[in-house]
């Protein structure tokens, strides 16, 4: 059993990733998520929805000269990863994404049945 634990620890070390900073804004028709992924080219970005989990992953690609000697590194991992749980009223199938200057913008609309409806309050 202990062997299993060790193995899992090793695996997590290999997959060590930075947690991108996000902004989450909700309006009447859905949620907009902005994530900071500087250094990730569009081709190395992946967003997937598994059940009610939204997972975003990105790999850094910094084309530094091959003979460069690193002197100071505050960004020392080569991956970003972060996952969120979507609540039931969000439509994971209709997520749209934009990516510009290292900022990912995801739009997650609310399902049709969850769109706001105004309830008239009757005076009695």
């Amino acid at each position: 059993m202990s062997e299993k634990v060790v193995k899992r620890e090793n695996a997590s070390e290999e997959n060590a990733a930075m947690r991108p900073a996000v902004q989450v804004v909700e309006d009447a028709t859905g949620i907009t998520l902005y994530a900071d992924l500087p250094g990730v080219p569009k081709e190395k970005l992946s967003i997937h929805v598994e059940g009610d989990n939204l997972i975003m992953e990105g790999e850094l690609e910094i084309n530094s000269p091959p003979n460069m000697e690193a002197i100071h590194a505050e960004v020392d991992l080569s991956r970003y990863r972060r996952a969120f749980t979507l609540s039931r009223e969000l439509d994971g199938d209709k997520v749209t994404a934009g990516f510009r200057h290292g900022v990912l913008e995801l739009r997650i609309p609310k399902a049709e049945h969850a769109q706001p409806r105004r309830i008239e309050v009757q005076a009695t």
């Binding site: 690193a70 002197i71 020392d76 200057h101």
Partner: peptide, 20 residues
């Protein structure tokens, strides 16, 4: 922003992670 700095014999390379 977070920064990485490196040197080569011919240059100093500075990377600032400042998205958006």
């Amino acid at each position: 922003p977070a920064m990485n700095v490196g040197t080569t014999p011919k240059s100093v390379e500075v990377y600032a992670f400042a998205p958006g």
